[in-house]
């Protein structure tokens, strides 16, 4: 019997339901643990500094990815920085249109060599521009869990 080019009726081939169950319990790691504890307990962003090339990684790493130095100098960086790029997202993970579009930005915190991605709030796309100043808005301390979601969003500021 020749191979069919396509199925014309759904019941011609028996379908088989299956799933790939993957559930994980991650660790934040040596540097990640310090980063999230600092956010939870102090509302402060930590980075790690490479004294060979002066890179400051936020979130911190225990190594410099460029020259492989061991990084042990953890430095506090600002909770404000400049908006490196932004977008307004209209489509969700399920492919459907979001009821409320969300604004996502890449933020370079003052004192950091790298950027982090997060939501932007208390603003509209029309208000945003490249290089604009934004600051982190944290959850109240008693609601924080030591997670990236302890930061609600970044908002434009005049600072």
């Amino acid at each position: 019997m020749a191979m069919k080019e396509r199925l014309t009726k759904a019941d011609e081939a028996k379908p088989w339901y299956g799933e790939l169950p993957v559930e994980s319990l991650y660790t934040a790691g040596i540097a990640g643990e310090k980063f999230f504890r600092s956010i939870q307990e102090k509302g402060v962003f930590l980075g790690s500094k490479c004294h060979k090339c002066n890179m400051v990684y936020v979130p911190p790493k225990i190594y410099c990815e460029q020259d492989f130095e061991k990084l042990e100098d953890y430095v506090e960086v600002a909770d404000c920085g400049s908006l490196e790029s932004f977008t307004c997202v209209h489509i969700g993970l399920d492919g459907k249109r979001l009821l409320e579009p969300m604004i996502v930005g890449l933020i370079n915190l003052d004192g950091a060599s790298t950027s982090i991605v997060h939501m932007l709030g208390e603003t509209t796309v029309e208000e945003l521009c490249m290089g604009m100043r934004v600051c982190a808005v944290f959850k109240p301390k008693n609601k924080r869990e030591g997670a990236i979601t302890d930061i609600l969003y970044f908002k434009p500021t005049k600072q």
């Binding site: 660790t27 790691g29 040596i30 990640g32 643990e33 790493k61 225990i62 020259d67 492989f68 061991k70």
Partner: peptide, 23 residues
Amino acid sequence: QETGKELCYEAAKMALDSCDMNL
């Protein structure tokens, strides 16, 4: 406690140091 990346770094750094080489 280390992430997979951090485990990699520890082993790689140790191997490099063992023969006085760098990345």
